[in-house]
Amino acid sequence: MSTVAVIDYGMGNLHSIAKALQHAAPDVDVQIVTDAQQILHADRVVFPGVGAMRDCMQALNQSGLSDVIRDVAKTKPLLGICLGMQALLSDSEENGSTLGLDIFSGHVLRFAEALSDSEGNKLKIPHMGWNQVHQRPHPLWDKIPQDSRFYFVHSYYAKPNETSVIAATTDYPNAFACALSHQNVFAVQFHPEKSQTVGLQLLNNFLHWDGQS
């Protein structure tokens, strides 16, 4: 039985993601873990997170998990979700300026205030709800129709320096990178665990992914 470790570093509720992973692939052993050794022994790793970037990085640095995640990013399939995606960038402008794990070179920026849609309606922040994901070819999109809607809730977005790592974009109102990939690392801004059928399919794809793009 293959194993997936969901990293628990005190940022948010991990039951949803654990339940969704279990539902998506009943043949996989889902573990919520705090311990570096358990993370390093798992076949795959999920790095979730909600809340503020500064708290997230403090928790990772204090627990020593920053180095563990950097190590995982070189060795086995890793899925970052929401804040777990943003933390993979070089830095974020949230809380002044916060350094990230720098696995993807680039920045995390706040949506500009007072953006409008094409009809002149004010766009709300946080970007909350179901929005279309424009995929670029990657095995984790297998069996997910192009432009499917996933559930988002965030006020900051990733802007990688290299466009080659963008695995999907979403418009709000301008296109931003809602998924990043590089070798065995994949990261999404939306919540697959809350995105019903398409979300479960993405988790299933990840749980059977060999880390090759």
């Binding site: 849609d117 766009l123 970007h127 709800g129 179901w130 929005n131 279309q132 432009d147 809607r149 988002f152 418009d171 709000y172 109102p173």
Partner: peptide
């Protein structure tokens, strides 16, 4: 096409 309105 962009963010959908929600029914709750």
């Amino acid at each position: 096409m962009s963010l959908a309105k929600r029914i709750i």
